[in-house]
């Protein structure tokens, strides 16, 4: 078996502690991102996720400046941003993109300052790459409990609110009429989203974080018609992309330029992109079938054939 797979898994892959951490953390993050991402795509809020990524960039670089873990910075800034978004009512009015865009610009400006200070004070540019593009092989052991707690919390919150959240996503009017506290459910989801983006930023970087959140979810939405399956499929696709990305990144150590591995985030994002493209095929087929069914019914109507019992 190991001999058979030798070309895939380079020497030392299964012995490395860094790889083991990456595989476990990467899977946990991909599951959280996939599950939450399904709701993000359904609610048309990928822009909010992107905003959390941008704001997280300043959070992560600011945290490094004061000697805290980048994940803490991603999380604190993301949660603050979620609060601000809820205050300005970003979920209710989509015409606020101008104000949001300007605020995001300011957040990235702050990130520019923090990263400049990070790299001059600590005399290293590595931190910039770590914040922006992630460093799953260099996750500090002390961060792992926080990762586990965050991932568990997001999944738990989603389990509690998933039914009212789905109903409010389908129709806020129906949900409101049935007594769902639509605004509280939406705000809770936004907080969970901020936490999920922070986890993504830790693994593949703040500016690529939405790729892991949105990509597998968007592909799953196109491939299945059922909400529960979409969540499971998105999580599975995310884990597959993450693990394959880790394997390829490990292998790439022996690729040119030899001795310098390629970044994991490049592989993960590229795999996600390819999966999304492939998911267009079943979606296209389903739409074609739907159009054909509509045309068949119209044809039956034209001929006056009763294709179903008409009430009367």
């Amino acid at each position: 078996m190991s001999h058979f797979l030798a070309p895939v898994f380079e020497v030392g892959f299964f012995e490395s502690d860094a790889v083991r951490t990456a595989v476990i953390v990467g899977a946990a993050v991909a599951v959280v991102a996939g599950a939450l991402g399904v709701f993000t795509v359904m609610r048309g809020q990928s822009f909010a996720a992107e905003a959390f990524g941008d704001i997280g960039t300043s959070g992560g670089s600011g945290a490094f400046l004061i000697g805290a873990a980048p994940l803490v910075g991603f999380l604190v800034f993301g949660v603050l941003a979620a609060g601000a978004m809820e205050l300005v009512g970003i979920q209710r009015a989509r015409g606020r993109d101008l104000a949001t865009g300007i605020a995001l610009g300011a957040a990235l400006g702050l990130a520019a300052l923090f990263m400049y200070l990070d790299s001059t004070i600590h005399n290293t540019t590595g931190v910039v790459v770590t914040i922006l593009f992630g460093s799953i092989f260099e996750i500090a052991g002390s961060t792992i409990p926080l990762v586990a707690a965050l991932a568990a919390a997001v999944v738990a919150v989603l389990l509690v609110i998933h039914r009212p959240l789905l109903l409010s996503t389908v129709s806020p009017e129906i949900a409101g009429a049935r007594g769902v506290p639509v605004r509280i459910v939406g705000a809770t989801y936004l907080l969970a989203l901020a936490a999920a983006v922070a986890l993504c930023a830790l693994t593949i970087g703040s500016i690529l974080s939405t790729a892991l959140l949105i990509g597998p979810a968007a592909a799953a939405l196109r491939a299945t018609r059922r909400p529960g399956r979409a969540v499971l499929l998105a999580a599975a696709l995310g884990v597959a992309a993450m693990w394959l990305g880790i394997v390829l990144a490990y292998d790439s150590y022996y690729w040119p330029p030899r001795g310098n591995g390629w970044p994991v985030s490049f592989f993960v994002v590229t795999i996600v992109f390819v999966v999304y493209l492939l998911s267009g095929v079943p979606a296209w087929r389903e739409r074609r079938r739907a159009h054909a069914a509509t045309a068949r019914r119209a044809f039956a109507d034209d001929r006056g054939t009763p294709h179903r019992a008409t009430a009367g």
Binding site: L166, A175, V180
Partner: peptide, 9 residues
């Protein structure tokens, strides 16, 4: 969803 989707859990 009309049965009990307004409930938590």
């Amino acid at each position: 969803l009309g049965i009990d989707a307004h409930r938590f859990g």
